[in-house]
Design a protein around this nucleic acid. Structure first.
Lengths: 246, 246
DNA sequence: GAGTGGTCTAGACCACTCA
DNA sequence: GAGTGGTCTAGACCACTCA
């Protein structure tokens, strides 16, 4: 449990906040091993003085790293580097982006893109008047040349204009984001069932094969629903990974 | 979008921090509807003055509610009440506690409780020397009189002493917590498969029935692994619900 | 240009931990 | 009792939003 007199270069002319510059540099040193697991930081008052920051600003940097699971603080004891365990702090992410990042070369077939009156459960969940016209979207997502998932989505028409071309090149979340729609929160339900004949054929599986299912409703920054997804994944090729904190 | 001159009673002699008293009272008013969705708070300087708090303290209260998805802040614009959408901010929770809360009367059958040398993948994941002795625990969890899940767990022996009796009455997480073990973070992988003959019988399903699977490694506050779980749920009776934020 | 939240300072007092 | 993080204050200047 070594101590470490930390020195961090800060650029006060940068638009990047000082607490964030500080946090990022500390994160880099922890992940690179320069600050090994078990290292104890100097106390906040001394460290703030050394870095030329006020204590609240330093505390904000430390808080950021505590939230991300890289440091632990104990009152009366001190602040210590811990083994980072977070895969990712469970962000609102899109399958398309995840596959891109994993180098899986996603491809999308648009099976249906229509504007139709919303069925009752959908209009209720989207908080629209009954039978309001909405986008109904069916896609088949491929990765590495094989089908991975059937994606069904329902969206109000007023938030974005969708075309088949843009849906082939990009994930739905990215399209929404670039249209200025902010997705802030989503409720998901993950379950499993076995494949029927039709979807088995679409997904190159046998009837009775295990499938992962995910229903999701996404909400924007003021809590209005912006999208419903009802997706089906081949269990043989897909799992959900998540990190919980408590 | 009404404005609201907020007045909150604060007890400065209480050990509960002022920012938290403030946040909890605001949360109560939002959830009770006294502060309806869309309400705009006064600006931070004025509100801090009205409440008799410094602005940083008020900001800390607001931050807490922003994190929980009850308020949104926009620079240059203001702070506004939003529709709460969080089922729960995805905590590290135990199946046993969840079932209790849902009034499902969980029951546990302990199928195996043994101390055995750890197989290689387990000792690696628990960061123990090869073949270190560990607890191997198999349980069958019932809810509402029917089997719900097969629970397999692996734990180092030095962190807690387990007996069959205590495992029948309580969830594993509660036992660990009351033994002073803090679970801080967990990585989970959720997947699906179909049931084999043996587990189908244990779970009162047919062979080939869909099952949800969850592998989990839990870590304590300094990032040491404390438990591995490998669980199998009846897809007909169980789903994972979670709330994502971004 | 008026109003908003975002960042930052330089202190203060306190509760907790541990030898 | 020495050392630590937790809370709180009363300011300051700034970037952003919107009419």
């Amino acid at each position: 449990m070594s101590q470490s007199p930390l020195s961090i270069p800060l650029d006060r002319s940068s638009p990047v906040p000082l607490y964030f510059q500080c946090a990022q540099e500390m994160e880099r040193r922890i992940l690179s091993g320069e600050l090994p697991v078990g290292t104890r930081l100097e106390n906040e008052v001394v460290l703030a003085g050394r870095l030329g920051l006020s204590r609240p600003t330093l505390r904000r940097a430390i808080e950021y790293l505590v939230d991300r699971g890289l440091l632990v603080r104990k009152r009366g004891v001190g602040t210590q580097v811990v083994q980072p365990r977070v895969r990712r702090p469970l962000e609102l992410s899109s399958l398309y982006d995840d596959l891109c990042q994993a180098g899986q070369q996603p491809r999308t077939e648009v099976r249906k893109l229509a504007v139709e009156p919303a069925p009752d459960p959908i209009s209720v969940a989207l908080e629209l008047a009954p039978a309001t016209e909405i986008y109904v979207l069916h896609r088949l997502r491929f990765a590495g040349g094989e089908p991975l998932a059937l994606l069904h989505n329902y969206l109000p028409t007023h938030i974005v204009e969708l075309t088949e071309t843009m849906l082939m090149d990009r994930g739905l979340y990215e399209i929404l984001r670039s249209a200025g729609v902010t997705m802030k929160i989503a409720n998901q339900t993950i379950g499993a069932r076995t494949a029927g004949q039709a979807e088995a054929e679409e997904l190159w599986e046998e009837a009775g094969a295990p499938l992962l299912t995910m229903q999701r409703t996404s909400y924007n920054d003021v809590g209005r629903p912006v999208e419903i997804g009802s997706h089906t994944y081949r269990a043989s090729r897909y799992t959900f990974e998540l990190t919980l904190t408590g």
